[in-house]
């Protein structure tokens, strides 16, 4: 579904991603872990071109998205993204946050988008918040709304950029539950996270990144129980 070939990204002289190639298949739940500065968020942000790669190619469903002629807006409509800091639009109600993109991109009529919004809000238990503003919600609620907002575009893949890192510890669970539910429904997911429990339980594959490389990858049980690379072993010994 997503094909990454020889992807490199540097900010000035700082090489953040060094010649990465990777394939993400439909239905996979890829979890990316690693120390800060390892390039995992940059890798994720390259997938929908929020960061422009310095070199390399990325294709999505057979379309070369790194080609400047590709309509990136059309591609992004099929790739949902959830941010660490939620990035809900504070000037709009929750309902408007969710329905703005589907309506403006012509995916749905307003009534259909409203119905979708309510249906998705019910799923995450927040339908009574439809007319509230983001400032009135807790962090966990905001992040669940952010997930709903991305889902309203009916994406084929969901990208999560440290979705629980900015949350109070007691709110992490409610967000992870929504993500687990999404995984069970078969959504293709790429998740950058520090939640090792989530990686082990939900991931179908774990990538460990360090210094702009994918150092090691494996299915979760083998990855956590028998890490091969010394760098992976050191990292896991500190976080587990």
């Amino acid at each position: 579904m997503i094909d990454v070939k020889n992807l490199s990204k540097s900010f000035g002289d700082n090489l953040v991603l060094d010649n990465i190639s990777e394939h993400i298949a439909p239905g996979e739940k890829v979890v990316i872990i690693g120390p800060s500065g390892s390039g995992k968020s940059t890798f994720l942000r390259c997938l929908n071109l929020l960061e422009t790669p310095t070199a390399g190619e990325i294709s999505f469903d057979g379309t070369l998205i790194t080609d400047p002629k590709t309509d990136i807006n059309a591609i992004r409509q099929q790739m949902g993204m959830v941010f660490q800091h939620f990035n809900l639009f504070p000037n709009m109600t929750i309902r408007k946050n969710i329905t703005l993109a589907p309506v403006r991109t012509g995916l749905m009529k307003q009534e259909e988008a409203d119905e979708t919004a309510i249906r998705l809000l019910k799923r995450v238990g927040l339908e009574e918040k439809a007319d509230a503003y983001p400032a009135q919600l807790s962090g966990g609620q905001k992040q669940r709304i952010a997930i709903v907002r991305a889902l309203a575009m009916k994406p084929k893949v969901m990208l999560f950029d440290e979705p629980t890192s900015a949350l109070d510890p007691e709110m992490v669970g409610e967000v992870l539950d929504v993500m687990k539910q999404l995984a069970e429904e078969g959504m293709t997911m790429v998740v950058v996270t520090h939640e090792m429990g989530f990686a082990r339980e939900v991931g179908s594959r774990v990538l460990f990144m360090d210094g702009g490389h994918i150092v090691e990858q494996n299915e979760p049980k083998a990855f956590f129980d028998h890490p091969q690379n010394p760098r992976t072993q050191l990292f896991l010994s500190k976080v587990l």
Binding site: L50, N73, M79, G80, M81, F83, N87, T105, A146
Partner: peptide, 27 residues
């Protein structure tokens, strides 16, 4: 206006002008 607002708008597939018009300019 926080750059995250633009990123959120663009990641939903909104074009530059719509992102400005509905998200950035009102804030």
């Amino acid at each position: 206006v926080d750059i995250g607002q633009t990123e959120a708008g663009r990641s939903l597939g909104l074009n530059y002008l719509d992102t400005m018009r509905f998200i950035v300019i009102p804030q």
